[in-house]
Amino acid sequence: MANQEYYSLITNAGINKIIKANTTNEVIKLTKMQVGDADYEPTADQTALKSKKHQLSLNSVIADVDNPNQFIIEGVISSEVGGFAIREVGVFAEDGSLFAIAKVPYTYKPTREQGAAKDLVIKITIAFDNSANLVIQVDNNIVLATRSHVANELKNLQNMVFLELDKKLNISTYEADKPTFVTTNTAQSISEIKTFTKLPQSEIVPTNPNELINKAYADSISKPTNIILPTLATALGVTALGTQFFCSSNSNQYILIDNTEITSKTTLQALIDNEKVVNVTPFGVGLKYQVTNKTAGIIYTNETGRSIVVQAWYGAGYLARTSISIKVDGQTVASGMIDGSSTCVTLYAIVPPRSTYRFSHLHGPIIIL
Score class of each variant (00 low, 15 high):
26 E>N: 13
123 K>F: 01
227 I>M: 12
93 A>P: 08
194 K>R: 10
32 K>T: 08
53 K>Q: 15
25 N>K: 08
134 L>R: 05
301 T>G: 01
255 I>R: 12
37 D>I: 03
110 P>E: 09
114 Q>D: 10
93 A>Y: 06
181 F>E: 10
123 K>Y: 00
216 A>C: 06
215 K>G: 07
217 Y>R: 07
251 S>P: 00
39 D>Y: 10
116 A>K: 15
216 A>G: 06
223 K>P: 12
235 A>L: 11
66 D>I: 04
134 L>Q: 03
2 A>M: 10
90 G>Q: 10
329 D>H: 04
344 C>V: 15
104 V>D: 06
310 V>L: 00
291 V>I: 10
343 T>W: 05
305 G>T: 06
361 H>D: 07
107 T>E: 06
302 N>S: 05
236 L>H: 13
192 E>T: 04
183 T>F: 14
122 I>Q: 03
362 L>S: 03
205 V>T: 09
357 Y>H: 04
102 A>G: 02
213 I>L: 07
215 K>S: 12
140 N>E: 08
116 A>H: 15
306 R>V: 13
253 Q>E: 04
28 I>G: 11
43 T>W: 00
67 N>D: 07
13 A>C: 04
105 P>N: 02
309 V>R: 10
336 G>E: 11
72 I>T: 03
140 N>H: 04
118 K>L: 14
170 N>L: 07
130 N>V: 09
285 V>R: 00
144 L>I: 05
274 N>Q: 05
119 D>T: 10
185 N>M: 11
129 D>R: 03
159 N>C: 04
28 I>H: 14
132 A>S: 10
48 A>T: 15
145 A>H: 05
298 I>L: 09
293 N>K: 11
90 G>T: 12
83 G>Y: 14
89 V>Y: 00
59 N>E: 06
80 E>V: 02
64 D>M: 04
209 P>T: 13
17 K>W: 02
324 I>F: 11
69 N>R: 01
135 V>T: 11
235 A>Y: 13
33 M>K: 08
95 D>N: 15
118 K>G: 11
158 Q>I: 01
159 N>G: 08
84 F>P: 06
147 R>S: 08
78 S>H: 01
48 A>W: 07
65 V>K: 15
136 I>A: 10
36 G>M: 01
282 P>S: 09
6 Y>A: 02
226 N>R: 13
77 I>N: 05
71 F>M: 15
185 N>E: 15
263 T>L: 04
20 K>S: 13
68 P>D: 02
124 I>N: 03
146 T>G: 07
94 E>L: 12
91 V>S: 09
306 R>C: 08
89 V>T: 03
308 I>R: 01
358 R>T: 12
3 N>L: 15
248 S>Y: 10
277 V>N: 01
266 T>V: 07
285 V>Y: 00
10 I>A: 14
258 D>Q: 04
191 S>W: 05
184 T>A: 03
18 I>P: 06
7 Y>R: 07
358 R>A: 03
77 I>R: 05
168 K>N: 08
296 A>Y: 07
70 Q>Y: 01
187 A>E: 10
357 Y>A: 03
247 C>N: 15
275 E>I: 00
45 D>P: 01
205 V>P: 01
355 S>V: 01
311 Q>E: 13
223 K>V: 10
315 G>Y: 02
58 L>N: 05
105 P>R: 02
212 L>Q: 02
282 P>R: 08
113 E>F: 09
188 Q>P: 00
169 L>P: 00
274 N>I: 02
225 T>L: 11
147 R>N: 09
194 K>I: 05
